[in-house]
Write a protein that binds this DNA or RNA. Sequence first.
DNA 1: CTGAACTGTATGCGGGGTACACAGTTATCG
DNA 2: CGATAACTGTGTACCCCGCATACAGTTCAG
Lengths: 274, 274
Amino acid sequence: MAESERPPLSGQKPAAEPADTSPRAALPPGLDLLWGRREAGSRGPRRGLSVSDVVAAAIRVADTEGLETLSMARVAKELGFTTMSLYRYVTSKEELLQLMWNDSAQGAGELILEGETWRERLRSWAIIQRRLIDQHPWITRMPMAAPPLAPNSLAFVEKGLEALDGSGLADADKLRVIGLLSSYTLSEARMADDAARAAAEAAQAGGDAKATWTYEALLRELADADRFPRLHRLAWNAEVGDAPSGYDEWLEFLFGVDRILDGVQALIEEVKDE
Amino acid sequence: MAESERPPLSGQKPAAEPADTSPRAALPPGLDLLWGRREAGSRGPRRGLSVSDVVAAAIRVADTEGLETLSMARVAKELGFTTMSLYRYVTSKEELLQLMWNDSAQGAGELILEGETWRERLRSWAIIQRRLIDQHPWITRMPMAAPPLAPNSLAFVEKGLEALDGSGLADADKLRVIGLLSSYTLSEARMADDAARAAAEAAQAGGDAKATWTYEALLRELADADRFPRLHRLAWNAEVGDAPSGYDEWLEFLFGVDRILDGVQALIEEVKDE
DNA sequence: CTGAACTGTATGCGGGGTACACAGTTATCG
DNA sequence: CGATAACTGTGTACCCCGCATACAGTTCAG
């Protein structure tokens, strides 16, 4: 099913293997563009677009209309070009998605983590990540089918490792901690976006007065006291916990981050004792 | 864009508002079937299928061929019916996905958590969740666009809360802890599946000897010492950390779980002191 | 100057989800 | 006991999607 060989970009003729000018080996498809290892020839007409143009347009569409409605045709229309013209810049939609994902983490390598202690630094790292995601919520809907290898992703991971400098953790443990925090952050951002979408949809369909359900109301309707006693209690306790005005997603997020940081601290102390 | 009103299931005639036999209010579309509040009429020919048949077939397809190739037509073929016949049981593909997701957590309400302490119980809860996901890896690829309200999801959350009985945590904090652990577990399962897929793909394309890249090899190629010093060190340290034979995903997962549990423990002790 | 390399375009294919009209089946009601 | 309304599965059709391919026009290398 999978083509075993494919010409780099041109669909015209196989184009004799380029002389591998760079000392670097050929990367698997998709990663070459990401790492700037795919050059456009110098012949032919001037290009009317650039890869960044395409990516920027795609991000614009995703930001304003959501990832579901993002299609090649939609991006092309945004740019005033034909659908197929995009394939001169990008080999597939999946590659475009990868580029978008990488682009949304632009500047990850340059950011400066404030804080004297690893804990402060790591906390602000997590917060920055969350902010980045919130700016492009479609990130949480991306069908990422491979471990992150985009340059900005790696840069961000590197920053996370940097935050743990001097913590005394083993390198591998640092990486695990980074992965743990990232997982949580991504997931939390997604749930926040879920809620926002549900709310938006409910607001739009406000015409049907009885058809609007808040999450809370649904939980009260569904979590009956017999099968779900604990959830039932939770659903009916309006001012639950210590959050006074109901439910603040951001506080929720910080709670999780601080719990994780506590866990990391425990690990560090454990290591220190040995 | 959104239909403001839609007949329950039949596409034929509007079918005068049913007399709301149950005392429960009408649920938003999608949730009614999930909670067994959509009844099939008694007239007409016998049904050749049942909702569970459809869901089971869909799960079968997803398990063996992946979520990408799951289409209505594929499920119908699996059952020996026409594509459109499925719409007599399910209003949309999205609903089918919700049902699959709910079905994969079957038995969540009946499972028994072993352990005397909250920590043992919560740990085994997380492990069970991970196992559940690993049995149906497509769960990690599901486009879930709403907070979890399926009965089995709620049952599983309830179980998690139950694990925290006697921990002394506030209800809201318990829920947060549950969310934290779930986030991590889902994300970790997804990354494991990513890796497995990448490996499978590499193995299949083994013909191109130089085209096979392991994640490690790629990291070594890409994480140059200048821009990514810490990642570079990590990539080139083969026997990193304490895992002897390279990289054991399961140990990785348990590491994260134990870190989170440490964090929870810290919180509990903090609360206890007040 | 010629031809190779490249550009954007137009067309078409296979596949997806699902609206809709239809013929056949069954329980209910007059 | 019909008649009718509710329901079943089917076939067709529509629109959208990603992308292969063929093409005409443009630019640079030799």
